[in-house]
């Protein structure tokens, strides 16, 4: 199990690096999907099968499909690829990388004090459901209201105004 975890983690890290350095946007997106699927495997290994499946369904299966949908519409060609290459020059990423390295060092320092996680216990669907609609019901309802607002505004924006209206 622990081997599976490290394998999936390695895939996730490498795929995420691939997302950053890839100049072809579709390939970058493929790496991103791979990274998300690897994260789903990590969730499963850590004993959260529901989270793993939702990661695969919602992130990899729905949101990334919409990303790909938008990329199809944009008609990106050689120009964007060249531009992407130019942005990836050493001068561009050196400073952000340094800053990120500082953050990584801090994270490692903080994580050093944390006790090792136990992976023996499985969080089933029932447990997640009773938690969501028990102690966290207010947060769930607020989130659903937010989503409803998003839905209504999306409908409003996408509505076709016919010449006869208003």
């Amino acid at each position: 199990m622990i081997l599976l975890f490290y394998l999936a983690a390695a895939v996730a890290v490498i795929a995420t690096i691939g997302v950053i350095v890839q100049s072809n946007i579709v390939h970058g997106l493929l790496y991103l999907i791979l990274s998300l699927l690897a994260v789903a495997v990590i969730f499963y290994v850590l004993g959260a099968p529901l989270a793993a499946m939702l990661e695969a369904i919602v992130y990899a299966g729905a949101i990334m499909v919409l990303f790909l949908f938008v990329i199809m519409m944009l008609n990106l060609g050689q120009n964007t690829r060249d531009q992407e290459r130019q942005w990836l020059r050493a001068g561009g990423w050196l400073l952000p990388a340094l800053l990120a390295a500082v953050l990584l060092g801090q994270l490692l320092y903080v994580m050093n004090g944390v006790e090792g996680l136990s992976v023996s216990e499985q969080v089933g669907v029932m447990a997640v459901g009773s938690r969501l609609f028990g102690p966290y019901v207010l947060a769930v309802e607020l989130a659903s209201i937010l989503l409803l607002a998003g839905l209504v505004s999306a409908y409003h924006l996408a509505r076709q105004v016919r010449s006869g209206d208003e």
Partner: peptide
């Protein structure tokens, strides 16, 4: 699997990539 239904749904949603790519 205790999440069989979800697994099928996840695989079905990944199937969209085949057609799109």
């Amino acid at each position: 699997s205790n999440i069989g239904v979800l697994f099928v749904l996840a695989m079905a949603s990944l199937g969209a990539y085949s057609v799109m790519l």
